[in-house]
Structures are given as structure tokens and as C-alpha cells.
């Protein structure tokens, strides 16, 4: 059984009186340990697909199974639980909380899970060390470079040991050097067994991916390996 199974997924939004379809029937399976890149022009539905996979949004039609559990009919509360426990988000704009230190930012998903203070502190420290930020624990994210911020975000995504990492253009705001650093970390994570789905516009970043899924106009157009 695949880790993620998408079958006949449709999603539309109502704008005034008109229904605007964004996803028009997507079928896709993703196995554990895969590193999948999602590519396509703007407006093709990549972000909507990511939002549904990330339990931030619900399908209008079709099924999305994560570890065999159907996400379409879960309550808000249960969706939040899945986001917390099964999914690690890495955003293009990092989305760290500037008022909190890097350590606290990484601790936050564990705080929400009510992990004991000592345990989450140790784990947050370990994770930050593993992305090479041992010397930046008590800094605020706003004092870091873009590449460093994204590394904090990756550490945060890993906090609750999720079954899947969703990265939405993780290198979109980064220069070439930082892009390479981040992609190295992502590749490393994938080698360690993490399943990663990444939206990207940069074909260069897909060289380590097991598959590239090309989307167009709300449909999967082509899958290349």
C-alpha cells in the first residue's frame, strides 16, 4: 500500500456565483521513501494539491488516503492532529515566528503535542545541530540569512517525526548557494528514509528526486522518473 493514495481528486472554489474548478481529477500514489517533485505553471493546482495533502483544505470530490486513512471526512480537530503528527511543512517564506528563538520555533510542534519540556528541548537542539545551526539556538529567526531560516524551518518540520514532508518551493526565496545547501539537506533526509513531496519551479532542484510529477490545468500531465 502506498503512503499516499490520491484517487479522482477534485477541488473547486466558488467565486461569487461561479464554480471555479482547480483540480479536475487527480490520481497519484506516493510510496514511502520517495522524493517527489511537483512541477507545472502557476495556477495549475500544485499549491491546492499541497494544501489538501497537508490537511489544510478538504477535497470537493475523490479520496485522499494517508497511511490508509481517508482525509476527506475528518473533523477540523483530527485534521489538525494529522498536521501536527504526520506532516512536516516547509514553506517558501519560511513562516517562522519572529518573536521566538530558533529553539522555541523548533519546539513549537512538540509543545502543541504536549511533549515534556526537557524532551522537546533536547530534540529541538539535536535537530538544529543536525542542520548545522548549533551556534544559533537562541537567536531570533530575523537575525538569520534566508538559507539559515529555511534550515530552522526544516528542523521544525521534523520535530514530531512526520511520515511525510511537504515542501512548497523551499528554495524559491533563496540564492544559488543557499539553494544547494537546502537541497543537500533535503536529499540527505530522503536518504535517511523521509518521504518528501516538493513543489518547485527549478528543474535543477529535481536532480535527486525519484519522480517528477508534471501538472497542467488541474490534471497530472506526465510523470517522469
Amino acid at each position: 500500500m502506498s503512503l499516499v493514495e490520491i484517487a479522482g481528486l477534485e477541488k473547486g472554489y466558488r467565486v461569487g456565483e461561479i464554480d471555479v474548478p482547480v483540480l479536475k481529477g487527480i490520481d497519484l500514489g506516493i510510496d514511502e521513501g520517495e522524493f517527489v517533485a511537483l512541477m507545472g505553471p502557476s495556477g495549475c493546482g500544485k499549491s491546492t494539491l499541497m494544501n489538501i495533502l497537508g490537511c489544510l483544505d478538504r477535497p470537493s470530490k475523490g479520496r485522499v488516503l494517508l497511511k490508509g486513512q481517508d482525509l476527506s471526512h475528518l473533523s477540523d480537530r483530527n485534521l489538525a492532529r494529522i498536521r501536527r503528527d504526520e506532516i512536516g511543512f516547509v514553506f517558501q517564506s519560511f513562516n517562522l515566528i519572529g518573536r521566538m528563538s530558533n529553539l522555541k520555533n523548533v519546539e513549537l510542534p512538540m509543545t502543541l503535542k504536549e511533549t515534556a519540556r526537557g524532551i522537546r528541548r533536547d530534540r529541538a537542539r539535536e535537530l538544529l545541530e543536525s542542520v548545522g545551526l548549533a551556534h544559533r539556538l537562541d537567536y531570533s529567526p530575523s537575525n538569520l540569512s534566508g538559507g539559515e531560516r529555511q534550515r530552522v524551518a526544516i528542523a521544525r518540520a521534523l520535530a514530531n517525526d512526520p511520515s511525510i514532508i511537504l515542501a512548497d518551493e523551499p528554495t524559491g526565496n533563496l540564492d544559488e548557494k543557499s539553494t544547494n545547501e537546502i537541497m543537500d539537506i533535503m536529499y540527505q533526509l530522503n536518504k535517511e528514509g523521509h518521504t518528501i513531496i516538493m513543489v518547485t519551479h527549478d528543474i535543477e532542484t529535481t536532480k535527486h528526486c525519484s519522480r517528477v510529477v508534471w501538472m497542467r490545468d488541474g490534471l497530472v500531465q506526465e510523470v517522469t522518473s
Binding site: A80, F89, L96, P109, L112
Partner: peptide
């Protein structure tokens, strides 16, 4: 952000 990383209502 907090909701995305798992905060409930």
C-alpha cells in the same frame, strides 16, 4: 503558521 504545524481551534 501555528495551525499549519498542528494547532487546533
Amino acid at each position: 503558521v501555528m495551525k499549519a504545524i498542528g494547532a487546533t481551534t
